[in-house]
Amino acid sequence: MNAVDFRVLAVVPCFNEQAAIATVVDEINRVKRRHGLNLDVLVVNDQSTDDSLAIIQTLECLYLNLPVNLGIGGAMHAGYKYAFRQGYDIAVQIDGDGQHPAGELLKILEPIFADKADVVIGSRFLERTGFQSTYVRRLGIRYFRWLNQLLIGTSIHDSTSGFRAFNRRTICITNSYYPDEYPEPESIVQFGLHKLRILEVPVVMRERQGGTSSITMVKSIYYMFKVTMATLFVYIRLQNKQRTHGIITDCHSDT
């Protein structure tokens, strides 16, 4: 199959990103035209309190307007549900703050075009170029790598990276369950237990172009604790389920 045969949905979660959102969408559209991709942009407005919605409505993109603020996990889940229902073959997450450069989009799409992976994660750390995040965050990321290694035996270098592409099978799985809060590390365990092929490719990330990170210093302890708990519990839950039902291959069952 050619790249054009795949219907791709780029899901852009947006919470108060009026400064960056227009550039992000424009960049994706430019990449789409340059490479002739069959791609739609879906911005998920998570109850922004600034002018994001008004800006989104003028852009060349589809958009979902959530009536209640759900957080990044809930917003992405809406996007994946949409991708599932509308029959997209691939879903990509590109953050609305401009951290994920659309120029790198093809790098995370190609392994899926070639059916080399079910989940492709754009990683900052495989080649140490571009924005490398703060020291504390990197320390946390090392901890998650260790946790993933322990639980599913795969070493993911950048488990907090949201720059990801999913194929249809992964979309099916995320359609029925996607973690609410801080979903990135937890979903890796979820994917690992579904025996999905996870591939990391090096990408160059930028510092956010606007807005503020959802994770502040005060919240980081809570973040570590919450993600550890969530990861352990999703692991136990799925293990139990797989012990009784085997590995779930049809994607309509939950989690």
Binding site: L64, P67, G74, Y82, R85
Partner: peptide, 17 residues
Amino acid sequence: MQQSVKELTHEIAFLRK
């Protein structure tokens, strides 16, 4: 309840669209 709210929110967003 939180789970239900999330699902309803998704559905409303789809309907709005």
